[in-house]
Each structure stands twice: as structure tokens, then as C-alpha cells.
């Protein structure tokens, strides 16, 4: 955890932070390699890997065919035999094409072999909605991945977290699913200038408050913060917790906040059923029942595929206004 207030920083976009984090780790460790569709010569369809081919060469930064199973299988085989591969799957929706490799192979290898095999790989995905790409290029897949034992699931919400959590993911000996929020790629933020390594499984309190706890993830953290700012003008002080990873899940930080505020809201981009907030609500319901002043409320997308038209997509995603409205009514 190198994030100190005195550390010099520089401003980069969330997109640039991906390449920054990868370059930091590839420069440090020659076993770190990067593969995926368009990641090398083109610098990635999201331009998140620009410059890496030039710096690290074609054996370490490799373009692949449109073969998601082959990409993740190659990453897995390399991870089992001494490398620390980072594989990009481009749009997170493409996970469904390679879900066998992720869910049946990567996630279970250590367990089925009783620890004989280790799969230290990172899979990067462009996750989430907001760009009018429609139902097959906009899904939030974090809850799909959270349901598979053996995977770690990380969703950074700031450029600094992209660098720090990506570094931690690369150094982790477990398979880490690293979900980059597509809607956040243009976002600017401060990143520590030197080597920056964070810790998986530690949530961050992004705003302190005493009246309600809003737990959020990725893009929705920013909408939650917007809602909290609005509510503050009305005299309601919300605490906003950024989970940052779903596995490991930082129940301790959430429970501490709920114990203080007595109320919990989750803000989730995913469709309603089986979203991560349902699991968290159940845990908090079991473990913090006597601290709660009201039932946990979940604010999610409705249970529909992601629509393409801007007016529909905007209506689907939890907005700051909707978050503020739900909190306001609940506390009213």
C-alpha cells in the first residue's frame, strides 16, 4: 500500500493507467506477458495497451486471433508453467465464449489437483454499460465471475486503483479477473509517480458520513458520490464504500460502516437477480441485523438486457438522482 499523501502524483486517464500498470509490472518481472485481440500493434481496441509492444517487443505483447478459448487457454498453460500472463478479453461480454476456460479450467485447477497446479494469471475485461453499444457489448459480468469458486474479482474505480490493483493482481498467485469499466476509460485522476502496488480485498471509504452507507463498485461509485453530495446539501450524510473487489470481499469495512450508520444501500450496475449486492445484503442481514435500522435496499439496473438507445440505457442504469431518491425516501 504505497498510497501516501506526500507521494508525488501525476494525472493520467483510467485508460492510460492500464498501460502504466502493465508497464510497471512488465518492467519489473520478465515473466509478465500480455496477449489478446488487437493488444499489440493496435494498442488495444480501447487503446489501453498503447505503447507496450514498442517497449516490450512482440514475444511479450502478442496479438491473437479472435479465439477467446485459445487466448485464455494459452494464458492458463503459460501460467501453469512459470509465466504470469495478462490476457485481454476485450469486451467483458466475450467471457461467455470462453467461460469454460475461466469457470471449468482456470478456477478449478488448483483445487482439483490439490495444489499441484497454480494459475497466476490476470484476465482483463472492458466491462459495463454507458457507451450505447447494446446488449452484447455492455454487460456487467462481475456477478457471473463472483459465483465461481477459485476466482478473484477486481473492479477499479479510479486511475490510481487501476495501477495499484492491476499490480497487485499480476503479483497474486491466484487467477484474477480484472474488470475495467469502459465508461471510466476517459476519466482523469491522480496516480502516484513511483511504483504503486495496492492490496486486493480492501474496500475504500470514499466519503464519510453518519446517516447511511452506500456500497458501490466501479462506475457506480462515482454516481454514488454524486448522490451523496446532493444528499449532503439536504442534511443527509452518506458514507460511500467502494468495494474495489468482490473476491476477496471486504465485509469488515462494510460492516463497520453499517454499524455506524444503521442503514445500507447497494448501488449495482448489474441486472437485479443475483447481483453482488444480494450476497452482501444477505451477509449484512445475518451479521449486522441488530445494527440495522431498516432493511438493506438494493439499487440495480432492472432485470433487462442492456438496450442500445441512449435514452433507454440512461433509464436503465442507476443514476445519481435515482440513488439519492431511494436514500431520501428510505430515510424520510
Amino acid at each position: 500500500m504505497a498510497t501516501l499523501t506526500q507521494v508525488a502524483t501525476r494525472t493520467v486517464t483510467y485508460r492510460e493507467a492500464v498501460a502504466l500498470g502493465l508497464a510497471q509490472e512488465m518492467g519489473r518481472d520478465p515473466t509478465v506477458v500480455l496477449i489478446g485481440e488487437d493488444v499489440a500493434a493496435a494498442g488495444g481496441v480501447f487503446k489501453a495497451t498503447a505503447g507496450l509492444l514498442e517497449r516490450f517487443g512482440p514475444e511479450r505483447v502478442r496479438d491473437t486471433p479472435i479465439s477467446e478459448q485459445a487466448i485464455l487457454g494459452a494464458a492458463m498453460g503459460a501460467a501453469m508453467t512459470g509465466l504470469r500472463p495478462v490476457a485481454e478479453l476485450m469486451f467483458a461480454d466475450f467471457l461467455s465464449v470462453a467461460h469454460d476456460i475461466v469457470a471449468n479450467q482456470v478456477a478449478k485447477a488448483r483445487y482439483m489437483t490439490n495444489g499441484q497446479l497454480s494459475v497466476p494469471l490476470v484476465v482483463r475485461f472492458g466491462n459495463g454499460a454507458g457507451l450505447r453499444f447494446g446488449a452484447q457489448h455492455s454487460q456487467s459480468v462481475e456477478s457471473w465471475l463472483m459465483a465461481v469458486p477459485g476466482l478473484k474479482v477486481v473492479v477499479p474505480s479510479t486511475p490510481a486503483d487501476v495501477v495499484g490493483l492491476l499490480a497487485a493482481a499480476v503479483r497474486d498467485d491466484d487467477p484474477v479477473m480484472f474488470l475495467e469499466e469502459k465508461a471510466l476509460y476517459p476519466m482523469n485522476g491522480e496516480v502516484p509517480s513511483g511504483e504503486h502496488v495496492d492490496q486486493l480485498g480492501v474496500a475504500r471509504v470514499r466519503r464519510h458520513g453518519k446517516d447511511a452507507t452506500i456500497v458501490s463498485l466501479g462506475t457506480m461509485v462515482h454516481r454514488s458520490l454524486e448522490a451523496a453530495a446532493q444528499l449532503a446539501t439536504e442534511g443527509v450524510e452518506c458514507e460511500v464504500v467502494d468495494l474495489r473487489s468482490l473476491v476477496p470481499l471486504d465485509v469488515t469495512t462494510v460492516a463497520a460502516s453499517v454499524t455506524k450508520t444503521g442503514r445500507m444501500f447497494t448501488v449495482e450496475e448489474n441486472p437485479r437477480l443475483c447481483g453482488w449486492g444480494a450476497e452482501l445484503a444477505s451477509i449484512i442481514g445475518e451479521e449486522c441485523f441488530y445494527d440495522l435500522d431498516a432493511p438493506v435496499r438494493r439499487i440495480t439496473s432492472p432485470h433487462v438486457p442492456v438496450p442500445a438507445a441512449g435514452s433507454l440505457e440512461d433509464a436503465m442504469l442507476p443514476s445519481a438522482e435515482r440513488v439519492a431518491d431511494v436514500v431520501r425516501r428510505a430515510l424520510g
Binding site: V33, E59, Q69, A70, L72, G73, A74, A75, M76, G77, A78, A79, M80, T81, G82, L83, P85, D100, I101, N104, Q105
Partner: peptide, 17 residues
């Protein structure tokens, strides 16, 4: 069929190393 893709990774790793 899954392991054919994984064998590729071990082969790639061997060459890389």
C-alpha cells in the same frame, strides 16, 4: 477439447523461457 488450448500455453511458455 479445452486442454488443447492449455497445451499451447505450456508450449509458448517453454519457448518464451
Amino acid at each position: 477439447g479445452a486442454h488443447l488450448t492449455i497445451a499451447n500455453g505450456a508450449a509458448w511458455s517453454a519457448r518464451y523461457r
